[in-house]
Structures are given as C-alpha cells and as structure tokens.
Design a protein around this nucleic acid. Structure first.
Length: 278
DNA sequence: TACCAGGTGTGGC
DNA sequence: GCCACACATGGT
C-alpha cells in the first residue's frame, strides 16, 4: 500500500487493506491498547500509535522504518484478497476482515506470548504479558519493553506462577532458559516451514497450534493454518472425524501460501461474530 | 455457579 | 500415531 515515511511518523494513503482495529483485535498480538485517538502498540522495545479517522491514517513513532516492516506495508493485500474465494464463509470473513495485515512480530516475543495463550482467555493473556513486561522488561519512555530471553531465564517457575501464568509457569521458565542457552530462533529462518515447525515443537509449552502461530506471526510463514477451539468449531462439520493436526494439514493443502491469511480472516470473523452475538 | 479459553504434557494403548 | 485426562486462573 502507499505510504510516506517521516522522522516521527508514517502517513498512510487511504486503503481498505489497513484497519487498525482489525489488525490488533484479530488475535495475532497482545500488547496493544485502545486509546482516545486510536491504538497504541508496543513491539519488543518499540512503540507506535495508529491514529486517524476512516480516511488518511498516521502511525506516530520514533521508529518509522521498523514499523513500516512491522505492519507489512510492502505486501499487497488486494492480491491476497483477490486470490481467496468470494464464496461461503471465507468470502464473508475476508470482506469483514479485509483490513487485517499479518504483523511481522519478533520471534521470541511471539514464542512466549503464544505459550501463555494456550487454553487461556485473551484479556487474561494480555494481563499476564503486561505483568511479565513490567517485571522483567527494560524500562523505556513510559512503557516497558518485552523481556529478553536472558532476563527471563534468570527467573524460575515460581516467579512466573506469581505473575499468574498458571500451569504454564514451568513452560516459560524452561523455554526461556533453552533460548538463553542457545536454542537458535533466528536460525530457523533458513529452514523450511516443516523443519522450523519440528524445531519449535521441541520447546516446552509449544504444541502444534502454538508452533503454527509462531511460524505465522513470528516468521512470516503463511503456509500454516493454526487450529484452535474457534477454528475447530468452524470446521467441525467438514472435518468432524479429523484431529486438529489433520484439519490443519487439509487446510494448508487447500490454501497453500494463503492459508495463514485465510485463517486470520475466518478467526476474526467468527470471534467478532460471537462477541457481537451474531 | 459452572463452563470456557487462540492447548499441551503425560501416560497408556 | 491417537486418546483421555490433568492442568492454574479468571472472564463471562
């Protein structure tokens, strides 16, 4: 999409493929906050605020180059939308969520965030992550960065239990230590999606669904289709006798490189529909 | 109050 | 490989 970079902001030309509400509330990210003017987002140690009405929008930030990539501004979502079916549920979902963009998130932040997400409510996930950042993240100007692996590895399970992480506390301690001790998250970028997935599954607290979320949101691998409780419900009739991993495999086979986008449109549409009693 | 949440680990088969 | 079960916590 069209945009202009300045020292302290990114100005976006009007586009149907950028909706800050859809981008932040589609479930891909947790460190966002609704403000009077729009949405504030913290990514690793950087901050931005998206403001504007329905017309021209502005991303206020000290790190415009970083956030141009973060918001995936160079990807043409019109082509993605054009290549997904207009019919049925996906057609409805993509029209509803056309403003979604898959954020280019940090791999470690995504890893930790989605371990916390397992069998958990989104409001509670957000709260746990904020306490984690306040406790272990570097203090920045008016906010806290996401903690480093080293900072997290210095704490044990009891610390994460006190944050309210529940039974995931041990997973957080163990996985943070694994990364701090050399598990090469950046090295996974050189691997195929399948091989990278296999490596992620070695980490405690990372099963198939969480691995797919990390691949999609933290590595930009769109040839995955995370199957959670919502998606399970959606495809219960079509794939009723399949396990979640079998369902995911069939959906990846169907949508290929567009699977991750399709999944986000459907997830957002169904979840928003439920919230609005549709 | 029960049920549920962007599931995973474990033990048993 | 698949299945059943346990698992902390708090929102609804």
């Amino acid at each position: 999409m069209q945009y202009k970079l300045f020292d302290d902001k990114i100005v976006l030309e009007p586009s149907d493929t950028f909706s800050e509400k859809a981008i932040f509330e589609c479930g891909q990210v947790f460190r966002y906050e609704k403000t009077e003017r729009g949405y504030r987002i913290i990514a690793t140690d950087k901050k931005a605020e998206v403001i504007g009405d329905d017309g021209r929008k502005t991303i206020l930030t000290d790190s415009p180059t970083f956030f141009a990539n973060y918001f995936d501004l160079h990807t043409d979502y019109d082509i993605i939308l054009h290549n997904l079916s207009d019919d049925g549920l996906l057609g409805e979902a993509k029209r509803y969520g056309a403003g979604i963009r898959i954020l280019k998130q940090d791999a470690f932040e995504t890893l930790i965030s989605f371990i916390i997400s397992a069998n958990n409510h989104i409001p509670r996930i957000k709260a746990i992550i904020e306490r984690l950042c306040e406790g272990l993240g570097e203090k920045c100007d008016g906010y806290y960065a996401f903690p480093t692996a080293a900072a997290m590895a210095a704490k044990d399970e009891s610390y994460y239990a006190r944050l309210g992480a529940g039974y995931r506390a041990g997973y957080l301690a163990e996985t943070a230590r694994a990364v701090a001790d050399g598990f090469d998250l950046e090295g996974l970028r050189a691997l195929s999606t399948e091989q990278a997935r296999k490596q992620l599954l070695r980490l405690k607290g990372v099963g198939g669904k969480v691995a797919d979320c990390i691949l999609l949101f933290g590595y930009g691998r769109t040839d995955v289709f995370p199957v959670d409780t919502w998606i399970k419900k959606v495809y219960a009739e079509k794939y009723g006798d399949c396990t979640p991993s079998q369902t995911a495999a069939k959906l990846v086979a169907e949508y290929g490189k567009l699977a991750g986008y399709a999944q986000q449109y459907v997830f957002y549409y169904k979840r928003e529909g439920e919230r609005k009693g549709r």
